[in-house]
C-alpha cells in the first residue's frame, strides 16, 4: 500500500507539472503531450514510455485497491459491534476519509480518463480535440460543472495525500522519533497543498479566463 501510494505521489507530481504547461500556451502544452509520446524513441517505440508508465500505474492501482479491500474487511471483522458513542481524539478528517475518499478518487479517475484519454468527451461542443489536448482542456473547464467535478476531486486528492504521505512513511518504518514524525506530517501537508493546489490552478484559470484558446 505504502509503496504503490508513493508511486502515485510521484505520478501526480509529474502530471501536475505537465498540466502547468497550460500557462505557457497552446503550443507548449501540446508539444509537451506530444513529447511524452516520443520520450525514449528510438530506443523505445512510439508511446513506449507512456505504456511503461501506464502498465506500472495499473499494477500499482491493483495493489493499492487489493490492500485497501483487505484492510477494510479486516477492520469490519475486528469490530463487528459498533460503539453507541465514539469520539475522535487523535485522527484527522483525512485519516478518517481514506476509504470513501479513495473510492471517490477511483470514480474520478475513471471519469477523467474517459474525459481526456480514452473517449475524449468534450461536453461543450463534442469536438474531441484530435491532436490538440490543449483545446480539450480549455473546452472542458469552460464548462462550469466540469470544473466543479475537478475541484471536488482535488479536495478529495488533497485529503488522501495529506494522510497518505504521512502514513506511507510510518508504514515503511521511517518515523521512529517525534521529530521524524513531525517531519512526515509536514511532508503530508506540503504534498497535499502543492498537488491539489497545483492541479486546481489550470481549471480555475480557464474558468476565469486567464487560460483561453
Amino acid at each position: 500500500m505504502a509503496v504503490s501510494g508513493l508511486l502515485f505521489i510521484g505520478f501526480v507530481l509529474g502530471h501536475m507539472y505537465g498540466n502547468l504547461k497550460a500557462f505557457a500556451g497552446e503550443e507548449s502544452f501540446n508539444e509537451y503531450a506530444h513529447h511524452l509520446r516520443e520520450l525514449g524513441t528510438p530506443m523505445l517505440p512510439y508511446e513506449g514510455f507512456l505504456w511503461i508508465m501506464r502498465v506500472g500505474l495499473i499494477a500499482a492501482v491493483i495493489v493499492h485497491i487489493a490492500c485497501a479491500v483487505a484492510l477494510w474487511s479486516r477492520a469490519a471483522k475486528a469490530r463487528p459491534v459498533k460503539y453507541a458513542v465514539k469520539k475522535n481524539r487523535g485522527s484527522s478528517i483525512s485519516s478518517r476519509t481514506m476509504r470513501w475518499g479513495g473510492l471517490t478518487l477511483l470514480l474520478f479517475i475513471v471519469w477523467h480518463l474517459l474525459n481526456f484519454t480514452i473517449v475524449k468527451i468534450n461536453p461543450s461542443n463534442g469536438d474531441t480535440g484530435g491532436e490538440n489536448p490543449y483545446a480539450l482542456v480549455v473546452d472542458t473547464f469552460d464548462t462550469w460543472w466540469m470544473t466543479i467535478i475537478y475541484l471536488v476531486a482535488m479536495v478529495a486528492l488533497g485529503l488522501h495525500l495529506h494522510h497518505g504521505t504521512f502514513s506511507s512513511l510510518q508504514t515503511l518504518g521511517l518515523t521512529n522519533s517525534a521529530t521524524s514524525r513531525a517531519r512526515a506530517r509536514a511532508a503530508g501537508w506540503v504534498v497535499a497543498i502543492v498537488v491539489a493546489g497545483g492541479f486546481s490552478l489550470v481549471p480555475l484559470s480557464v474558468l476565469v479566463g486567464i487560460i483561453e484558446k
Partner: peptide, 10 residues
Amino acid sequence: GFGGCTNIGE
C-alpha cells in the same frame, strides 16, 4: 483477528 493499522493515531 485484530485489524490492520492505517496510522490513524487514535
